[in-house]
Design a binder for these strands. Structure first.
Length: 840
DNA sequence: TGATCCCGCCAACGT
DNA sequence: ACGTTGGCGGGATCA
């Protein structure tokens, strides 16, 4: 076999070409399973190079391929390399086998090249694993690795044995949003901090006392980690095909992504990720082997995520040394987006875990994904499925084999309780509710001990019920009432503004009421966050932890330049010195207090069903159907009272941060400053804002299940032939810029947003605290500076919205210089830590 | 060396 | 029983 064969190349290329050609159009052709090309040869290095290049920039991709590889430097170099090898001899063996050429990343590129990022509707985009493996000339095992992570992002979904449906990036944004929510729910941010803190402590040999404490607490919280069991959802939905146990890769991948989405500098080191993915630190170094294995898996995942251009490898240099890490390079996700739900019909990913989704919904979903052919055939059966779904669910739940569980995955760490408790599937809301009370009680009890750790995770199942006891964790973010809102406004909607160059994104919380205005505003404004100077410091936070991030690109600015402004908040004196135990006590107290408060608050909660998390831990984007919703409680005071407290104690770092609910109250949430700048809001965000703003709160309940109908509708229409497959009636949130309408969907969003907000607030608080702590350490408050360069907002926007339809762009919005005023309150995320990041 | 991570054994599942 | 999935970790490569 001589080395270079182009044949492979062709194989690889051809598909990509197709994709290119029919980018979004109709991918009817899909799986070219071209056997035409001789599968025999492995690709040549050259081909690989091409692939890489193409992968590098999707846009260019197709063209690139056709053209010669001349351009890239890297390419050239590689080419040379190849040549040399070839020249050297026929020992192609050497040349070929370079490990790199066989890397998962490369393979993934090749794989991705075969399919369009945005395939037209479901149609034929199916993937036959055997074929792919053959064409790419790799063992199937490898393909699984790729597919599994793609599946975690809902870019593909399993149809049947050996078959997957390709969804491309249509669902990506939704998925990411969902993941982010869950990540927030799980308090990954805090977990990360905790881990870092521990590390730091360890370094210093902080007394064992604390370590033990920490470990213990953490351990308790975390052990739940792996619990995930099968997800009921999966089962039924895929009907025949699903795979079962989703264990790690898929779930791991999602969690990994969540970490990026929730962390401020969106950089996550493998080490931290591994720890979190493992059951949290468990006993400190529990099994090194386990840790090692986790890392290995993370590399696999990271490789594919890198191929997707969602992350990129960097190195973080800390005091300790250089650690491998990855930086998120994917789209920023707007937390709030009014996502209307996910689910454009097209995608239909069969989400394994859709939690509450009513069976019907699921069915519809399932249907969608498939390609047309099957749909027809299936249709009838599907119907049946629908009917039986509920039964199935029950079965599933009860089924011995499938542990129904739940929560584990996502929340894994959190629950202090025995894993089982939390694991109730969302589906059984009612049950849950019933349980919830019990749980609450238990939690309350446990809370003291457990809370310290505060890692508690929110559980998957949302329960809208009322007064939640202390365990905030349990409440799904969804259900939670908004957090901190400045008085008067119940909901704040955070918007994240991506900062392209810096890579840092800012989140702005807007009051709903203001949201409108925002939209109208000029697209660009800057927000600067300011931490309270005084917020209680975190004693544990170590300055060391802070790192500087320097990336070659312009990322550097992130840390340093971040302008930080101080808001007016008055805060309370830091409690730093408290011992952990004391803190705990405080917390518990706080919790109690919170409880009281909580009572008042009603939860609107459950509305946002847009995503659901399944027990298995696998997230699936759903359309929102809110079954769950119970009627919302009157939100009475939510606005006024902020749920802050409750969040507060949750934080994992709690021990570290001694803030009580009362304290929080005292503190004003800093209002953001928005200076007019270049930053533009993405259209999406804008669009979202209005929705949120409106009203929603009140009506939240009402809304409810509309989505399903939309999906169903689409489905139906498509099948009937009224609509082309690609067309979907309901839209994707992005696509649709829904005017603030009275639509029920909106309502849901609002509720969702609310929750998010709360979460965010919490995070923000933590961050602020951190900042404060830092400041203290440094003794200086960081002056707010204005970010200098701003990039083109537009670019950012593009990233966010790839929607073909070209949404109304924000640009149309009138710019408002004084936007600042309008957005009075909010919180901003600022990366507080400084790290040195070196790109690889 | 330590960071990466390919390779493929082999168990859990599905059919 | 056999095929499909995919956890897992030894050990080869790379840097």
């Amino acid at each position: 076999r001589s080395v270079l064969k182009t044949p492979l190349k062709q194989a690889a290329t051809s598909p990509s070409v197709l994709a290119e050609i029919q980018p979004d159009c109709q991918p009817l052709t899909t799986p070219p399973k071209p056997k035409e090309t001789p599968p025999v040869e492995p690709w040549t290095p050259t081909s690989n190079l091409k692939m890489l290049i193409s992968a590098a920039s999707p846009e260019i991709r197709s063209r690139e391929q056709r053209r010669e590889l001349s351009n890239n430097t890297s390419e050239v170099l590689q080419a040379k390399h190849c040549l040399q090898e070839h020249l050297s001899g026929d020992e192609y063996e050497k040349s070929q086998p370079s490990r790199k050429e066989k890397s998962l990343g490369l393979l993934c590129h090749k794989f991705l090249a075969r399919y369009p990022d945005y395939p037209s509707t479901a149609e034929n985009n199916y993937i036959c694993l055997d074929e792919v493996a053959e064409e790419l000339n790799v063992e199937r095992r490898r393909i699984y690795d790729i597919v599994n992570v793609l599946e975690s992002l809902h870019m593909v979904s399993r149809l049947a044995k050996n078959r997957y449906a390709w969804h491309g990036r249509h669902n990506l944004s939704k998925t990411l949003q969902a993941l982010k929510k869950v990540g927030e729910k799980n308090k990954y941010t805090q977990q990360i901090q905790l881990i870092k803190k521990r590390e730091y402590e360890r370094e210093f040999d902080l007394d064992g006392e604390r370590n033990e404490e920490m470990a213990r607490s953490s351990g308790s919280t975390k052990h739940s980690e792996m619990c995930f069991v099968e997800l009921p959802g999966m089962e039924f939905r895929a009907a025949s095909v699903n795979s079962r146990k989703d264990k790690s890769l898929r779930v791991m991948s999602q969690k990994f992504v969540m970490l990026f989405l929730v962390s401020t500098p969106q950089i996550v080191s493998l080490e931290v990720a591994a720890k979190i993915l493992i059951g949290e630190e468990q006993l400190e170094d529990l099994d090194k082997s386990k840790f090692k294995t986790k890392i290995r898996r993370l590399y696999d995942i990271a490789n594919v995520l890198s191929s997707l251009e969602l992350i990129k490898k960097v190195h973080v240099t800390e005091e300790r040394g250089r650690k491998p890490a990855f930086k998120w390079t994917g789209p920023e996700i707007l937390p709030n987006i009014p996502d209307t739900k996910l689910e454009p019909t097209s995608t239909t990913c069969p989400s394994p875990i859709s939690e509450f989704i009513p069976s019907k919904e699921q069915c519809s979903k399932n249907l969608f994904p498939s390609r047309g052919k099957q749909n027809f055939t299936r249709h009838p059966s599907l119907i049946k499925l629908v009917k039986s779904i509920e039964n199935d669910r029950r079965k599933v739940q009860s089924a011995p084999t499938s542990p129904v569980k739940i929560s584990a995955s996502t929340d894994q760490n959190l629950s202090a309780f025995p894993s089982k408790m939390p694991q109730v599937p969302a589906i059984t809301k009612q049950q849950m509710e019933g349980q919830s009370k019990k749980e609450k009680e238990m939690k309350m009890k446990l809370s003291r001990s457990a809370l310290e750790c505060n890692l508690s995770l929110p559980q998957a199942v949302p329960k809208p019920e009322a007064p939640r006891s202390a365990a905030p964790s349990q409440q799904p973010a969804l259900s939670q009432p908004l957090g901190v809102c400045p008085p008067g406004h119940s909901s704040v909607s955070p918007v994240i503004l991506p900062h392209p160059h810096s890579g840092v994104s800012y989140a702005i919380y807007l009051h709903p009421s203001q949201a409108h205005t925002v939209t109208t505003f000029s697209p660009s404004f800057m927000v600067q966050p300011l931490p309270h100077a005084n917020v209680t410091g975190i004693k544990s936070m170590n300055p060391k932890l802070l790192n500087r991030i320097t990336t070659e690109e312009g990322d550097k600015q992130i840390a340093t330049d971040e302008p930080i402004k101080s808001f007016t908040a008055e805060e309370k004196p830091p409690i730093k010195s408290e011992t952990s135990s004391k803190r705990c006590l405080k917390r518990s107290q706080a919790l109690q207090e919170n409880n009281l408060i909580k009572r008042y608050r009603s939860d609107e909660e459950s509305l946002d069903t847009s995503l659901t998390f399944f027990s298995s831990g696998y997230l699936i984007p759903l359309t929102q159907c809110t079954h769950s919703s119970k009627a919302g409680f009157p939100n009475k005071e939510k606005a006024g009272l902020c749920s802050l407290q409750h969040t507060t104690y949750n934080s994992p770092i709690a021990g570290v941060i001694p803030v009580t609910g009362s304290e929080l109250k005292a503190v004003n949430i800093p209002a953001f400053q928005i200076t007019p700048l270049n930053i533009m809001l993405s259209p999406t965000s804008i669009a979202a804002a209005p929705v949120l703003s409106n009203s929603c709160l009140n009506s939240s309940n009402t809304s409810s299940a509309q989505n399903p109908s939309s999906s169903v509708l689409n489905f139906t229409l498509q099948h009937i032939g009224l609509i082309p497959a690609g067309v979907q009636v309901p839209a994707n949130p992005f696509l649709q810029h829904v005017p603030v309408s009275s639509q029920p969907e909106n309502v849901n969003h609002s509720s969702e947003s609310t929750n998010l907000q709360e979460e965010k607030v919490d995070e923000n608080i933590l961050q602020l605290l951190n900042c404060a702590g830092l400041n203290r350490k440094h003794g200086a408050v960081i002056p707010p500076s204005v970010p200098k360069e701003t990039q083109e907002p537009q670019t950012v926007t593009e990233n966010f919205f790839r929607t073909p339809g070209g949404p109304n762009t924000v640009s149309s919005l009138p710019a408002n210089s004084d936007g600042t005023d309008r957005i009075s309150q909010g919180t901003l995320y600022i990366p507080q830590r400084k790290l040195e990041v070196s790109e690889d």
